[in-house]
Design a protein around this nucleic acid. Structure first.
Lengths: 100, 100
DNA sequence: ATATTATATCGATGTTCTTCAATATGTCAA
DNA sequence: TTGACATATTGAAGAACATCGATATAATAT
């Protein structure tokens, strides 16, 4: 069974911004609050929330409320799926696959 | 020694457009003239040239002049490298690799 | 209830991007 | 060298996007 299909345009658009890639890198292996991300990026809080929403809509971050805070973390599995789908579509002769 | 590094923001921006992905899909495994691409996409010729330039600047297509025509083809190797670099940066716990 | 803290939404502004008509450049044939 | 064809560039218009101040919503504690 194939993994859930990925909209490669939406995927690419979601990651096609420097600020978003900063955010993605920061919360790649960590569960961080919005304020943590604001402090680590020097980007205004509404801007961070805006980018998190885009990433969330694309399925690239998970979030959970912890008291007053909302914690975000990158969804690495979806990231890997997106990358594999792009490669499958546009580099069929250079196959790329998930390693177990 | 690591392969040539990829600017993941430039890579993502280059592929983050529906028209460009159409063009990429069309000339993925073929060497096509600009006019071929125009006909297959129903996009105006200047628009196609514009997108080809963006892809070329990002290193994602190769081109060669054949008489009056200029033939383009997708650079699958660079595509695969871009995908792997994105995965390496943003899905380190779900490693993705090029298969030989 | 009220104050405090954390995040989301709204609204405005400036920037970047896509698109295409018009035009320029390049290539070849007669 | 003139004409025809193929592609690239220019310039302009509109759409999409990033950014942030102001404000709304949500959760908690006192």
């Amino acid at each position: 069974m194939k993994p859930k299909s990925v909209d490669t345009v939406e995927f690419a658009k979601a990651i096609a911004d420097e600020t978003r890639q900063k955010i993605m890198a920061i919360c790649c292996c960590e569960l961080l609050s919005v304020n943590d991300i604001v402090e680590k990026t020097n980007v205004a809080q509404p801007t961070v929330s805006h980018h998190l929403k885009i990433l969330k809509t694309a399925g690239l971050v998970r979030s959970e409320r912890r008291g007053k805070q909302v914690l975000y973390t990158l969804n690495q599995e979806r990231m890997a799926e997106g990358c594999c789908q792009v490669a499958e579509n546009f580099a069929p002769e250079h196959p790329v696959e998930l390693v177990e």
